[in-house]
């Protein structure tokens, strides 16, 4: 029924282009399921972190109350939340078939994501040099960097994904072939934000409270 030309055409897109083809529907469903699995992945990391939090054994280490500086993390949180909103704007324009506006909002999302990642690198660097809080120093360090680092790796991957999609499709506009892909990367981006909300609360805020 639908030939190649139809899938790659930017004209007359249906109401929900991300789920208009069977491929799109499959991707949409599969990606949600994948996020369900990611929930367990992060739960294992969170559980391990909580079990090993402030656990130093015979090694020396700084407890979480003294280690974490909240203002920087607060700014990072706001940045990531904002990037979540900007990607919602991107999808909003995708649904209205305003490709250029979508690209603008996704560009802002990428910039915010990159600045988040930059701040995170700065933060890790700070912990390593000021407090000697490293991955290998003690179990607390291992668990902390495993959890927050896994999240950071997800952010980095999300950025690469966004950029690849945007460069690949910059010239040809929105169509039924790439709409599902844009939709998925934005879902992924929200999920990263969801995880961060818990990291902010469980690691940093609760770490400060003790």
């Amino acid at each position: 029924m639908s030939t190649h030309e139809d899938v790659l055409s930017s004209e007359n897109l249906p109401h929900e282009p991300e789920r208009a083809t069977l491929e799109g529907k499959n991707k949409f469903m599969g990606f949600w399921f994948f996020l369900g699995g990611e929930t367990v992945l992060f739960a294992s990391l969170f559980g391990t972190y909580l079990a090993l939090k402030n656990s130093f054994g015979d090694a020396e280490g700084t407890p979480s109350q003294e280690l974490f500086g909240l203002p920087l993390v607060f700014i990072m949180t706001v940045i990531l939340l904002t990037s979540s909103l900007t990607s919602v704007y991107g999808i909003y324009h995708m649904k209205n078939q305003a490709f250029k506006k979508m690209m603008v909002w996704f560009t802002i999302t990428v910039l915010l994501g990159a600045s988040f990642l930059g701040l995170e690198v700065y933060e890790f660097n700070h912990y390593v040099h000021e407090f000697h809080h490293t991955f290998t120093a003690h179990a607390f360090g291992s668990a902390f960097y495993a959890l927050v680092g896994f999240h950071g790796a997800h952010v980095a991957f999300g950025l690469l994904w966004f950029l690849t999609l945007m460069f690949r499709n910059a010239k040809r506009g929105l169509n039924l072939y790439n709409a599902p892909k844009f939709y998925l990367v934005s879902l992924y981006w929200h999920f990263i934000d969801v995880v961060w909300v818990f990291i902010f609360t469980v690691v940093y805020l609760m770490g400060k409270v003790g």
Partner: peptide, 26 residues
């Protein structure tokens, strides 16, 4: 399993301490 195997890899090859009790591991 993915997470568990990552922990094991980190412990064995990258000096992490997830399962090393003297360094606080469990």
């Amino acid at each position: 399993l993915t997470v568990g195997l990552f922990f094991m890899t980190f412990d064995r090859l990258f000096g992490a301490n997830f399962f090393v009790p003297e360094m606080g591991g469990n």
